[in-house]
Design a protein around this nucleic acid. Sequence first.
RNA 1: GCUAGCGUAGCUCAACGGCAGAGCACCGGUUUUGUAAACCGGUGGUUAGGGGUUCAAGUCCCCUCGCUAGCUCCA
Length: 641
Amino acid sequence: MNVTVEYSDGRKLELPKGSTAMEAISKFNSADARNAVAALVDGRRADLSARLEADAKVEPIRADSEDGLDVIRHTASHVMAQAVGHMFPGVKYAIGPSIENGFYYDFDLPRSLTEEDLKTIEEEMQRIIEQDLPVSRSARSKQQAIADAEAGGQTYKRELISDLPDGEEISFYTQGDFTDLCRGPHLPSTGALKCFKLLSVAGAYWRGDSRRQQLQRIYGTAFADAKALRTHLKNLEEAEKRDHRKLGKELDLFSTDQEIGQGLILWHPKGAMIRRAIESFLYEELFKREYDVVCTPHIASEKVYLRSGHIPKYEDMMYAPLVIDEERYRVKPMNCPGHIKIYQTRKRSYRDLPIRLAELGTVYRYEISGALLGMLRVRGFTQDDSHIFCTPEQLTDEIEGILDFVNYMMGVFGYTYKAYLATRPAQYLADATDEEWTRATEGLRQALVRRGLDYAVDEGGGVFYAPKIDIKLFDALGREWQGPTIQVDLNLPKRFNVTYTASDGQEHEAIIIHRTILGSMERFVGGLIEHYAGKFPVWLAPVQVRILPITDAHHEYARSLKRKLVAAGFRAECDDRNEKTGFKVREAAVQKIPYVLIVGDREVAEGKAAVRSRRRGDEGAVLFDDFLARLKSESESRLDV
RNA sequence: GCUAGCGUAGCUCAACGGCAGAGCACCGGUUUUGUAAACCGGUGGUUAGGGGUUCAAGUCCCCUCGCUAGCUCCA
């Protein structure tokens, strides 16, 4: 009996029924067979050992493809689990999936693991790999699987199995003395796992539930070949070098202080300079795009947050009330109510709309201590916030305008991005009608389409009061960052009765769009530090030029250059310390200053400066005025050159 | 918040339960210097804070604070 097998390139062959996927692949293409770690059989992922019992389409899953890496990592997690089982007989296994860039496995162990244990586990894994144990799939009934899990004392597995649908066969994978509940597919044998590395140990709750047992999770990664693994580890190292907390200290940008409090950022002069440069730029753009800038207070009576719905819904993120003249006040967790109150200080006509109110508003929110992280996750931060009040007809145009703004700003900072349309969640506000949800969501969608933006739909990913567009940023290392967000609010217009007078003379409910481009200044600057690895382009660099006189005789000339630079609006300083030039050059380089001007006898005589740029090094002497012109154009272009 | 690890001079890091140290930074001097670290000397510590064990604690134990990894959370 034969079956007809169609290969991914369209070729067909007759093979004996019951041939394995691997046999099929090797018949078609021996190179693919060497590279395959699993197969797609009729589009479904399967082991290479899977038998072809009927006509099928077969496609190899290559080791270096996304699916292939997933298979490799999943097998790696099983090998790790087996190794841990050897070290801790009686260990209870929880879950061990492959994840982006690696894998993990959660264990319930009698003692806590240390970093040294990872080495031992790695060695044991290596032994398992050298034994090249075949990985085989087997199926059991649910009852049998539960009985087996109970017999082995595997309480977590038991729970997992009992949650699986009844009546279906449940698959297990076995390699040597280790068997695990698993959907698969897996590598054909442990020897096919070429290179892996264990990375860290951490606590993790069973099923992510903090009320349940805390398990120990080991993270690791695995790749198709040693080179890919090395590259990945190098990237991790590079990311560590760029860590904004490390650079923030080295470049004297910011700090935190125990006595000031957790999650509160102290911006040092240089950090504040970067922030100010970004803010000035932002204000320029806001005015160009016809926003109005407002300021609202840092505390407000609790009444306004009761009305907005924040206290009922988000009180656990707000700080406790301050009692002032027997009235309860709150430190502001958001800027919307203030902006709405400004809108409502007069009657608004449709002719006035849209009204775009923007504020760099500082807000305070309670974040659990374990969530805090440098500048990226804090308890006090300044939002680049705006609320746009408009008519339903204006909605799409406004969203489009914001998308254009986003595109421009992200371009300047050198981020690429991807848009997500997040639709109505399962738990949503009942006050808004289906029509309103649809109108808001479609407004967002149409704006994306009109701008020709590629977007993914995040079904049910909206917030309870609004559908939204989330923009994810990709930095210089290709890492993902939370970026701009645009929300059409279906809650506040009703709660605050926000209206405008339409051409029919009637009051109509206004639409409120929340949007932020940069997010918070803290997070954005923290991210930028890592994106630029501390090498800020000239327009952002806290010190743009440092002048190094060779000896005392050149101090006066150096200072005159500094005065000219400062007068032209640049941030320049003169290093007239009693040190050798090599030493000063080194310090300027360590501080990542974009331009160093070295001045000695030759330069003084000719009105020149020897330019050393961060990017190109020694560029030789040029007329100072020429340098100034270059600096001006580079700074104004805001290019990262 | 939970689990684990960590916290020593401004910074980076040493110190078996036995005198708290180095480099850099800083200060004073010498040196007048040409593109990534000149030389000599000096100041600097209640070892995060508190309690305990011990003849003796940076080191062991307990509590508090903070940082970190992850879980969790993110209007």
